[in-house]
């Protein structure tokens, strides 16, 4: 069976090379038959990769330990469902998944491009095939999932037990959908630039693909945070770990793109910048895969031990060189014909927003690669810890929050003093009142007061926009409030979907602020029957219990939580010790409410039955996950195809446009 897998991947590699060459020749010599053949080759690459994936999947589910990959990532005691996640649990499998997802995106992008801009088809085939070739080269040479063992072991090593969790099962594929998704807009933009006949550099066509990739990346980050929170047992959800940063950087750049592309669409400005963001987002997605897959992060020496890192770096350099070369070639045609008309306008707010996003991305990049650079230059590894990231990102994040409220209400071209007063008085007053209220309630953290006041302000601006739109709709006879809201959102899905996404981000902001500023924690060693006060909770320890199962000894601390005299029920914090290895996992005791989370981790125990438990009260964490749900709703609404072209057409006088109007 391994032969069939190897054959499929090798065949896919040959076909990807063929697709690239046929597409280039087809475009160069105007041979539609060659382009059609190249497109068929792309479909066959997908088919053969799918076949290879089926071979690997079947080996994983059959626990065929003759496959080196299966022996390393599956074991008899592992629950069957997790054999599926073993597919992407290791490097070889995850690279195959990368290639497979890329083929899916290539087919989807080609389908849409051939309907909307058929002349871009050869370019999209060429770029997608070139990227495919690299990943196929990896899985056929240095990282083959089909290596076989001459003497198969009786049992496999299995995955790291920390990865055996439902959140970890969906986190990597979601993240990969985002990472790989950056290739589709990149391919469209490169094809448009090389073709030269698409005036905006293809960014408008690329927008939808970027939005989808951005959404997947967002959810990948949320799922990863949730996994970190419930599985790692350290009490938090974000640690500025390089692997997290690897996904955060393309997220920041693609968010910047989604804003600047609107300026390109409405005002034909920022064309060069927007194209650069697409290239950068793609580059960072490859860089992120390189960071997590090359071993460069643990040490520069482990990086040099495997050729994979060098290949990745080579490919990344080559791709960026080619992409920036193409952008430089078309630089003048992308130049905007007009400029900003006023400092106080929607486009300047977007420009400012872009500068902040890219500054954050650059700071995160610097902080992430600093240990590698310092080790390469001085031989000593200097790590940049979370305080660096917190100090740089938090103030910039607050600025972004302010812009999130201001930007959408500013008029295009030029905002008048009267419109500023009309739009910002009520939400601004609301934000100030909220801040004063928090101060009066005894909140003494200035950063948090500012963050919540800004959240209040932004929520106010969004509410105002909806209220105005609803009023207008009702004035036009759209009946009740529900009917008016439905008509409003359906009439301009991108605009109101965007507001809903902003609302989701606000919830995440509020959750992050609350939990990082107002959290409390306490570590206590308890005898059965002892109770401890944590925040407004009293937690009683009722004793330890031990069970065995799935190759692990599970020690559980039984806890019961109270607020005053009210019994909130029992909680269980446990730790699993895997037999025959040093692996341990934690199962945290968690009681979530919209106000706060009571979080307990079993840190240690004695033979006498005493337990050391780490308790945390994390305020508002639930709002982070709720933010993810709201963000999903907003993105789905924004992605649904509009019935008519939304928004203000270029050339409409500023005052003729009513905010919230259809």
């Amino acid at each position: 069976m391994a032969d069939l897998g190897r054959f499929s991947l090798f065949g896919a590699l040959v076909l990807a090379c063929y697709a690239l060459i046929a597409a280039v020749l087809g475009a160069r010599f105007r041979r539609p038959d060659l382009v059609a053949s190249a497109r068929r080759a792309v479909s066959m690459v997908a088919l053969l990769e799918g076949l290879a994936a089926c071979v690997l999947m079947s080996a994983l589910f059959r626990r065929d330990y003759a496959f080196a990959y299966v022996a390393a990532h599956v074991r008899d005691a592992q629950a069957g469902w997790y054999n599926l996640t073993s597919f992407w649990g290791g490097m070889e499998g995850s690279l195959l998944l990368w290639a497979l997802i890329l083929s899916g995106y290539s087919l989807a992008a080609l389908r849409s491009v051939s309907q909307e801009r058929p002349r871009l088809v050869p370019g999209v085939v060429a770029v997608c095939s070139a990227v495919s070739m690299f990943f196929l080269l990896m899985v056929t040479t240095v990282a083959s999932p089909f290596e076989t063992l001459p003497f198969p072991p009786a049992d496999g090593r299995g995955m790291n037990p920390l990865l055996l969790n439902p959140w970890m099962a969906i986190h990597p594929p979601t993240l990969y959908l985002g990472f790989v998704g950056m290739t589709a807009p990149f391919a469209v933009v490169m094809a448009a630039l090389v073709d030269g006949a698409v005036e905006d550099g293809g960014v408008l066509l690329a927008r939808r693909w970027m939005l989808w990739a951005w959404y997947c990346l967002s959810m990948g980050l949320v799922f990863g945070a949730k996994w970190s929170y419930v599985v790692l047992g350290w009490g938090g959800y974000w640690a500025w770990d390089p692997v997290e940063n690897a996904a955060f950087m393309p997220w920041l750049v693609s968010t910047a793109f989604l804003h600047s592309v609107m300026v390109q669409e409405r005002r034909a400005l920022l064309g060069q910048w927007t194209v650069l963001l697409v290239v950068l987002a793609f580059g960072l997605s490859i860089f992120g895969t390189f960071l997590t897959r090359s071993g460069v992060l643990s040490s520069i020496h482990s990086f040099t031990q495997s050729p994979l890192g060098a290949y990745f770096l080579g490919f990344l350099s080559l791709a960026m060189l080619a992409a920036f070369g193409v952008v430089a070639w078309r630089w003048e045609t992308l130049r905007s014909r007009s400029g900003l008309e006023a400092a106080l306008s929607r486009e300047s707010a977007f420009l400012f927003n872009n500068v902040i996003f890219v500054t954050i991305a650059f700071s995160v990049f610097l902080g992430t690669v600093f240990p590698v650079i310092s080790e390469a230059l001085t031989g000593r590894r200097v790590n940049v810890g979370p305080p660096f990231f917190d100090h740089v990102v938090a103030p910039l994040g607050l600025l972004l929050l302010l812009l999130m409220g201001v930007g959408p209400l500013l008029a295009w071209r030029r905002a008048s003093a009267a419109s500023l007063k009309r739009d910002f008085l009520a939400p601004g007053a609301g934000g100030v009142l909220l801040g004063l209220g928090l101060l009066a309630a005894g909140v003494r953290a200035p950063g948090a007061v500012l963050a919540f006041a800004l959240c209040g302000f932004v929520a106010g601006t969004i509410a105002l926009e909806f209220a105005r739109g609803i009023r207008l709709r009702r004035a036009h006879g759209d009946g009740g409030v529900v009917a008016a809201v439905t008509a409003l959102v359906a009439g301009n899905r991108r605009r109101y979907g965007g507001y809903i996404v902003h609302l989701g981000i606000l919830l995440v902001f509020a959750g992050v602020t609350g939990s990082s500023v107002f959290g409390t924690q306490r570590v206590a060693t308890l005898r059965p029957g002892d109770a401890v006060q944590v925040g407004h909770y009293r937690v009683r320890f009722d004793g330890l219990s031990e069970t065995t199962g799935r190759g692990a000894l599970v020690v559980t601390a039984r806890l019961r939580a109270f607020v005053g005299d009210r019994d909130l029920g029992s909680l269980q914090a446990s730790r699993s010790l895997f037999l025959g290895s040093t692996d341990t996992t934690t199962d945290v005791a968690l009681r979530s409410t919209p106000l706060d989370d009571l979080y307990a981790v079993l840190a240690g125990w004695t033979r006498d039955g005493d337990a050391t438990v780490r308790f945390l009260v994390n305020p508002l964490v639930m709002w982070i996950w709720a933010g993810g749900v709201v963000l999903t709703a907003g993105t789905l609404i924004a992605m649904l195809p509009a019935r008519r072209r939304a928004g203000v057409p270029v050339g409409v006088p500023v005052e003729a446009w009513t905010p919230g109007g259809p």
Binding site: L4, F7, G11, P32, D33, L34, A36, S37, R40, L51
Partner: peptide, 30 residues
Amino acid sequence: MMVGVMLVIAAAVAAWVLAPLRAPKEARPR
């Protein structure tokens, strides 16, 4: 057996991918 399967797959894939090139000129996709 496996070699036979692979050969059949290779032949089928190649035939399908190259089919547009073998079509008579006037029937080729535009």
